[in-house]
Design a protein around this nucleic acid. Structure first.
Length: 357
DNA sequence: AAGTCGGGGAC
DNA sequence: GTCCCAGACTT
């Protein structure tokens, strides 16, 4: 009698060879730089969303040295719209580390790979196995889901105990000589068959021994404990025009959108308008006594983030003298396409055809 | 151990 | 609205 574990591994590999038709530009790739780039882009990101970004980055930066030599702002512009911008910053740091320390040759040992910025246990295992055939099992959202269902494990995957338990199991299941193929198989299987919603249990090659299916636990697995708390925030953006220039700054606080740019921000606890902003004295510390003229006020914009709902509006004003606004700099409006902005701002800009009112 | 970091697609 | 995606880092 074949054990559940052996059944699992063999059926998975068989499914990959005979049934799996999932195709991606980096599949079968052996160039560690390309594998790394795809893994960074795809962290918490759907394949369909990351795909065009991957193509663009490979075109602009065919080697890690090219990426390392690129100006920060240019790279952030390419990353614009993809989210989780710390990935971009860490990616650049890693590219420069690889260039400086390893002469541009991607390190081929797990510990060296994992020591690079932005590379955690998942990405290190992915690079180690795909590029170098090292026996490290990947543990991502797909793997958690497939393992928890097939083995009927109810330990929360977002707990320390869960990560340890699933990590140990995943490593034990890995066929050491087939790490690349196996890792690819289990992730594709989780994405195509053992999906989060409406998994294809009817045609699943593991169904005979799937604990969750037999105990009707499929919709309840995997278990997560943390619940999401979503805050509402209200951003009032002043588009302060001086001649052909406008004020912007780079966000640096420990907050969302680090390293992206924005216009003059007044955050309020609730919905506000220009009259309320003036009477509350919120504008004084920014413009001082500089007289200004209100040109136009935009419709409200809403953007849903994982932990926050951002309500924003854009207020266009003109000044005849250029005040010193702390933290902000004047740049030509025509140069705005050289800077990376958050989605809510690019959406606003595009809705106005870059006319800024 | 818990919080936080984007944007988008499926339901 | 909800969930979650080829996770990692900070506090």
């Amino acid at each position: 009698m074949i054990s559940p574990r052996q059944f699992f591994t063999e059926k998975l590999l068989e499914w990959n060879r005979e049934t799996n038709t999932r195709n991606m530009p980096w599949k079968g790739e052996k160039n560690p730089y390309r594998i790394w780039l795809s893994e960074i882009i795809l962290q918490q990101t759907r394949v369909e969303q990351g795909w065009p970004y991957y193509e663009r980055f490979i075109q602009h930066y065919p080697t890690v040295k090219k990426l390392a030599a690129a100006p920060d702002e240019e790279v952030f512009r390419l990353w614009q719209g993809l989210g989780y911008y710390a990935r971009c910053k860490n990616m650049l740091a890693a590219a420069r580390e690889i260039t400086a320390t390893y002469q541009g040759k991607f390190p081929d040992q797990y510990e060296q790979i994992k020591a690079l910025k932005g590379i955690g246990s998942y990405t290190a295992a992915a690079i180690a196995s795909f590029a170098f055939n090292l026996p490290y099992a990947v543990l991502d959202g797909n793997v958690f889901r497939v393992l928890s269902r097939y083995f009927g494990i109810e330990t929360p995957i977002d707990s320390t105990a869960g990560k340890k338990q699933f990590g140990t199991l995943a490593q034990e299941l890995l066929p050491q000589s087939l790490s690349a193929e196996y890792n690819q198989s289990i992730m594709d299987f989780g994405a195509v068959v053992c999906k989060p919603q409406q998994p294809l249990c009817g045609e699943c090659v593991l169904r005979k021994k799937c604990v969750a299916l037999h105990e009707q636990l499929v919709p309840h697995l995997p278990v997560k404990t943390k619940k999401l708390l979503i805050k509402k925030r209200y951003f009032n953006y002043l588009l302060v025009h001086y001649k052909e220039d406008i004020y912007i700054r780079k966000r640096t606080d420990s907050d969302i959108w680090q390293n992206l740019h924005e216009f003059v921000l007044i955050e309020t606890a609730g919905p506000s308008d220009i009259t309320a902003l003036q009477s509350s004295g919120a504008i004084d510390p920014i413009l001082g006594k500089t007289p200004f003229e209100i040109d136009r006020v935009s419709a409200p914009f809403k953007q849903q983030l994982t932990h926050q709902t951002i309500h924003s509006q854009f207020i266009s004003i003109t000044v005849k003298k250029a005040p010193a606004i702390p933290g902000y700099t004047l740049v030509p409006r025509s140069s705005l396409n050289n800077y990376a902005f958050p989605k809510t701002i690019t959406t606003f800009l595009e809705s106005n055809h870059l006319q800024l009112f």
